[in-house]
Design a protein around this nucleic acid. Structure first.
Length: 270
DNA sequence: ACAGTAACCTGTTTGC
DNA sequence: TGCAAACAGGTTACTG
């Protein structure tokens, strides 16, 4: 499920309810997620008041009076409110309870995580090395242009590298490169400043649209039908191998770049 | 210090 | 229908 828009939507959905409430209990049913949850942390967590809920990259940071919880949704993680005594379903891994509200985590592939850190979460080793936020004023074409020289890799790998910019996953990397008219296989070091300027705008554009659709997705998620739509109708290239380009009717190609499926139109993207 | 690959894990889709 | 292989939204650890 989650690329940055999904995480953003999740944070918006939970922060209003969790903020200022006290953690009544935290039950961890499966400590073995991407990182092991140490049961000794529980003493430091339970009873604390939640100060706020923030996002950094795709990490969800739940700031407490002392330290913070850091949650990542991995590939398949979902956070949602359940009844406190709702029977556990398969792959439900923890409950964070603040009284009448109970935040539950479900993650079939267990690539997500829940950890507690005593000190400033933004200085945690998972967080501190992250690159620019895509909506930050520091994320500019010039920023990408200046960093490009070190990177002989493809532009697609470059923008998916979270030490460069966070929040651009496989789907939106494909879509942003289509909008920018850049072939995903082009080496990052060969891209001009003008094209980087455009790419920055396209990345923001794609993420913004998805954040809007993400709200819808989350509502759908709670509905009995359940399945998120991923606003598939809006996708230009992702998952559209053998279909026609929406601009020029050229057949969309699929190639593997950095072990990830990559889709592009060789006519529109050069 | 960087590029490329393997690994973490389960569910779903695809192909024989 | 059954079974195996391929593949999936992320990220890090390792190797060269």
């Amino acid at each position: 499920m989650p690329e940055l828009p999904e995480v953003e939507t999740t944070v918006n959905a939970i922060s209003g309810i969790l903020t200022k409430r006290q953690i009544k209990f935290l039950k961890v049913y499966q400590p073995k997620l991407r990182y092991f949850f140490k049961s000794t942390w529980l003493n430091s967590i339970v009873g604390q008041k939640i100060i706020n809920v923030k996002r950094r990259g795709k990490y969800i940071i739940i700031n407490l009076q002392v330290g913070a919880l850091i949650v990542h949704l991995g590939m398949t993680g979902k956070l949602f409110f359940s009844k406190p005594n709702e029977p556990l379903k398969k792959h439900d891994h923890f409950d964070l309870n603040v009284g009448q509200f109970n935040l539950r985590y479900n993650d079939p592939r267990r690539f997500g995580c829940l950890i507690w850190t005593k000190s400033e979460p933004l200085k945690h080793k998972l967080i501190i090395k992250l690159g620019e936020e895509p909506f930050s004023n520091n994320f500019t074409g010039t920023y990408l242009y200046e960093r490009r020289q070190k990177h002989k890799t493809s532009i697609k790998n470059f923008i998916m590298n979270n030490k460069v910019v966070v929040g651009v996953g496989n789907i939106y990397a494909n879509e942003a490169l289509f909008l920018a008219g850049i072939n995903p296989k082009t080496k990052a070091c060969n891209i001009s400043l003008v094209r980087f300027n455009k790419l920055v705008l396209c990345i923001r554009n794609v993420l913004n649209q998805a954040i809007e659709a993400g709200g819808t997705t989350l509502q759908d998620y709670f509905s009995p039908l359940g399945e998120p739509g991923y606003f598939k109708t809006k996708l230009y290239v992702y998952g559209r191998e053998h279909e026609q380009c929406r601009n020029c009717e050229t057949t969309i190609k699929k190639v593997i770049i950095g072990q990830r499926s990559s889709f592009y139109c060789y006519h529109c993207q050069t």
